[in-house]
Amino acid sequence: MKVLVAVKRVIDYNVKVRVKPDNTDVDLANVKMALNPFCEIAVEEAVRLKEAGVATEVVVVSVGPKACQEQIRTALALGADRGIQIETETSPEPLSVAKLLAKIVADEQPGLILLGKQSIDGDNNQTGQMLAALIGSGQATFASKVEVTDGAVQVIREIDGGLQTVQLKLPAVITTDLRLNEPRYAKLPDIMKAKKKPLDVKTPADLGVELREHLRLLKVEAPSQRQAGIKVESVDELIEKLKNEAKVI
């Protein structure tokens, strides 16, 4: 079974984002970029499926400008077999990404498609579900355990209040939550080897997809800042403040 993993290049999760002075967007110039943490978990899971003999090939796909090839190479260094970059000028909105990925699914015919549950830039949490809808497959979001049995996959999902287990027919779309696995670190020889793994570049036109604007970003602002309050010296003082000043207890 082939496994397809979709990954995204995003701001490194340790970097504090800054809003541009003209409020058109956030400022990503000269900011450290990385593989989206949830996508990294998706890659790790796919590689583990291959190591367990469940998957035969792991294909990584990313949509974006040429720079996203870096993140595809990162995924290849983690153990994926080959990469596909879909070249676009900017990072398109989730529905467009899902349409492009649906074409790749039609070409590649994977049994399982893994994505991160959300990217830490847009925080949309949409692409996997949209892709599942477009290819007419079942979906398991927020996965914390994935088990492939013949012709089906059982997934434990992290839902509000607990855990839910579902079974999906293959092909199926799974989006990863934080606790699905702990991704490995790429070793230097693997990073060198990744440079030689095949990486195809396609355009939306190659795939017959015309990207439309569904959402318009009107403004980006810095959030209102909370001011640091005071330090209290003792538990007694804390209780006094909460009772008489904040009046919350």
Partner: peptide, 15 residues
Amino acid sequence: PIYAGGAIATVQALD
């Protein structure tokens, strides 16, 4: 909110 609340976006839905 976007970027873990690091910025607030105003978005128009065109559909």
